[in-house]
Simulated assay, not measured.
Amino acid sequence: MNWNTILIRYGEISLKGKNKSKFIRKLKANIKAALSDLGTVTMRAERDRMFIYTEKPEELDRAIEILPSIFGIQSFSPIVICAPTLEDIKETSLKVLGKTETAGKTFKVDVKRADKRFPLNTGELQQELGGHVLRVFPDLIVQMKKPEILLYVEIQHEAAYISSHTYKGAGGMPVGSNGHSLLLLSGGIDSPVAGYMMMKRGVSFDAIHFASPPFTSDLAIEKVEDIVRQLTKFGAVIRLHVIPFTELQQTIVKQVPSNLSMTTTRRMMMKVAEQVRKDTNSLGLITGDSLGQVASQTLESITAINEVTNTPILRPLIAMDKLEIIQIAEKIGTYDISIRPYDDCCTVFTPPSNKTKPQVEKVAYYESFQEFDDMVAEVASQRVTTIPSKQTKEDFEDLL
């Protein structure tokens, strides 16, 4: 008996209609990329499931470690394939359970009979298999709800699939199946979580980071690179655009009253991001805003910031509190990176007080005394673009 196959079950993809094949192709491509280091892996996609085959047990184990982070998978199971006959199913079921610690464990048989020609109906087969298993493994305890061991048997026309363990997938939609956007990535706790949440909804993205050397350090950029590397594990290659923001930010501080400078800073970031969005053929902008968390995230501030662009701004964290965001950051592995003590450009230029209800007309009035649009175009054109998963900090030396 060889454990060389994984059965993948789709999530929301199963609800799709005529365009279902598009989502399946994207999921297959994402899985293939994630498992690219496993040399013997092959794949086969069907309308309602997908199979991964490997010739090496260690590659099967590695695939099991990787698959839970790939969006679009509802669940998956290592399976053994046998002929769809009662005797073969019985024999294979015993072999599968023989690889599992059974003493004192609760147990249930779950049967899916897709091939209605099978001589026993679902209930009859469950009883037959359950009795057969208990005669060989008498220490097992039958339990219908939440058993420790679930022997799953699926009977198709061409074969029967048998497993004793089901792993939970990440759910959501395959990354890249719902368009491409641009993530404003500060390096704090919130924006990486915002990126993760949009990936779960099938959105791929580039990331844009604003650096203000020498006030911000190369360690701050390293932190952002590491965040991008961590997010890449969830199924997409992410390009990082680093914007040299020092001169523009210093001009804002000189030109705009301090209590409005943060609002103008955010507006200029949106303008720069809008230029990069066009250059990268992105459809939207993603931010980590959570309503009311800080002065720049009140409804009035958001209105003032939105005024500079007509592009859809996606704010997946808008109704979440900080503790919820932190819990997700810890779960996805970005929290410990985000709390590294390296200031970003907003932190180092934070004014003593910020307007929580800025008036758009007043902000625009102070901005009118400076040709900000020319500066926006210039810094956007000077950006440094890399793929952090393939680059090192030396690539940013010219910027710093």
Rank of each mutant, 00 (worst) to 15 (best):
G188W: 01
H180N: 15
Y161N: 11
V203S: 14
E148A: 08
Q156G: 15
F137M: 02
E124P: 07
K200I: 04
I227P: 09
L150H: 10
Y152D: 12
E222D: 14
Q156I: 00
E222M: 07
H180K: 15
E222Y: 03
F205I: 01
F215W: 11
E148C: 01
I149E: 06
A236S: 15
V142T: 15
I243Q: 06
I221L: 12
R229W: 04
I162A: 12
I149C: 12
I243D: 09
F205T: 03
L134D: 08
L151F: 12
L151K: 06
G176E: 03
D226L: 06
I155E: 10
A170E: 05
Y152G: 13
A211G: 13
V133A: 09
D206A: 14
P138D: 06
P174C: 03
S212W: 10
D190W: 02
V136P: 01
V133W: 07
V133Q: 08
F215Q: 10
A159Y: 12
P214T: 03
V228A: 12
H241A: 04
D190P: 11
I238L: 07
P174R: 03
A160H: 07
F210E: 07
L129H: 05
H132R: 02
A211F: 02
I221D: 08
G187T: 10
G172W: 02
L151V: 07
G179P: 09
D226I: 00
A220T: 08
E148I: 00
G131P: 06
F205P: 09
H157N: 03
H180S: 14
T166V: 14
F137K: 05
A159E: 14
I243K: 02
N178F: 03
F215H: 14
A170T: 05
F215Y: 15
D139M: 01
A194G: 11
L125Y: 02
V224D: 07
V228S: 11
A211P: 03
V203C: 14
R229F: 05
V203K: 12
E124L: 06
V193I: 02
S217M: 01
V224T: 11
